[in-house]
Amino acid sequence: MSDNALLAIDQVTKTFPWGKHRIEAVRRVSLSIGTAETLGLVGESGSGKSTLGRLAIGLLAPDRGTVTVSGVNLGAVAPRTLRTMRQTLQIVFQDPGAALNARVSVAANILEPLVVHNIGTRDERLRRVGRLLERVGLTTAHGPAMPDELSGGQLQRVMIARALALGPKLLVCDEILSALDLSVQAQVLSLLDDLRTTEDLAYLFISHNLSAVAYLSDRIGVMYLGELVEWAPTAALVAAPKHPYTQALFQSILEVPTSKAARKSLTGIPGEVPSAIDRPLGCAFHTRCPLAMDICRQEAPPWLTVGDQHQAACHALAAVEEG
C-alpha cells in the first residue's frame, strides 16, 4: 500500500456472530483510495460490500487487518479521536428516509454535524447550511421543510449535504441510488460527479448497479461472498472483464437492444449467492462458475496480474496463463 493513500485497507476480515458460530462478512480484503479518487465496489447481496464501507470509516472495527486513514491506524486511536476523525470520513446510506432525523427540519439535520463538533457560531452554521443546500441542488427554501415533505431524491441530496457539512475527504456511498427512480438516480449520479471536483472528494462508491459504478469510478473492485475477486481501472474492466463472476455480472445487465431482433438471449450463470454460513471451500464462486475445475473446490485462487493495474483471483485464469 502506498503511503500517500487517503485510505488503505490491509488484509481486513470482519465476522459477525451467527448463533453459536461466526460468519465472515468480509474476508482478507485489501484496497486503497488516493486523494480525490473514486473507487467503485460492485457485488450482489451478501458480498460484504456494505460491511466494508462501514469498516472503511471506522463505524465497524475489523477482527483482523488494519484500516489506515492518512497514515493513522483507526484501530489504534481512542474513541474520542476517532470521533474527531469522522470529520474527514463520511457516509451516505441507502435509505435517506431512515437515516435522517424525521422529527426535525431539513436544516436541523444538516446542522447536526456542526453542532456535534462545535463548529462556528449559530449564524455561521445557518449560512453554511444555506450554501450546502444550494451545493446539492436544493434551495434555502427547503431548509424549514420536514424530511417527510421531500421526495426520495431530495432526501438523498439532504443526506449528501449533511455528509458534506464537515468538509470530508472521503465519502462512502452505500447503495445510495437503489431506492431511487431511474431519472433521479441519474440526477444524483451527476451531482456526485460534480461534487468530486468542486469539493476535492474521494468516493468509495458501493452499489450492485454495475452501470452506475462504471459511470462514476476511476477503479472498480468486484466482490463476491466477502472477498475481492477482481479489481481494475474502469476502462479495462468494462473492455475486458477477466473473472468469470465479473463476466457474469456484465452479462446479466439488460441494456436496451437496438431492435427486437437484436435481443440477446436471457442466459446467465445458474444458482444464487451461497450463504456465508456454509461458504464453499476453495474458490467461493466454484458452485456457480462455468469454468470450475477440481482445484477450484479445494484451494483458494491466487491473485494474478492480468493487465496494467488489473488483477483477478481465479484458477482458470492461472491455468490459461501457464498453458
Partner: peptide, 17 residues
C-alpha cells in the same frame, strides 16, 4: 442498529447525544 443511529455515529456524535 437503525440507520438513523448509525448516521449519528457517522457524524461523530457521542453516545449521550
Amino acid at each position: 442498529h437503525s440507520e438513523l443511529v448509525e448516521s449519528g455515529h457517522a457524524i461523530g456524535a457521542s453516545s449521550t447525544f
